[in-house]
């Protein structure tokens, strides 16, 4: 019956050990969102291709999603296997994008 103790330890750890960079993450998310909104106008003025604009925006989205997953969803502090669980479907995301674009 060691399992409940492990869970209690996990809860205790979340409560006591987290540095809680929640405000910093919120500020970063806001800054990146403001930057994202400028991309279409900047792209038109600087003659960026749609592919370049899409690449910039998808990169910033991955950064934002990672911040939420790591800090707000606590994946940074969870066991590695649980952290990898939501990464699994991303392989299929890549496959789907490549398949759709190649046809």
């Amino acid at each position: 019956m060691a399992a409940p103790t492990t869970v209690a330890h996990g809860t205790e750890r979340i409560a006591q050990e987290l540095k809680r960079p929640y405000v910093l993450v919120l500020v970063l998310l806001a800054i990146v969102t403001v930057a994202e909104v400028q991309v279409p106008t900047l792209g038109r003025n600087l003659d960026f291709t749609t592919t370049l604009q899409a690449s910039l925006l998808m990169t910033s989205s991955v950064v934002k999603a990672s911040l939420v997953a790591l800090y707000y969803m606590h994946l940074r502090y969870e066991p590695r296997l649980l952290s990898l669980l939501p990464v699994g479907p991303l392989v299929f995301v890549l496959l789907l994008v490549v398949t759709v674009m190649s046809h």
Binding site: T33, E36, V37, V39, P40, T50, Q53, A54, L57, M58, S60, S61, K64, A65, V68, A69
Partner: peptide, 14 residues
């Protein structure tokens, strides 16, 4: 997280 991807896909990428 879903909205983080949907916002640029529908509103920002032509």
């Amino acid at each position: 997280v879903v909205w983080i991807f949907l916002f640029p896909i529908m509103y920002l990428i032509g």
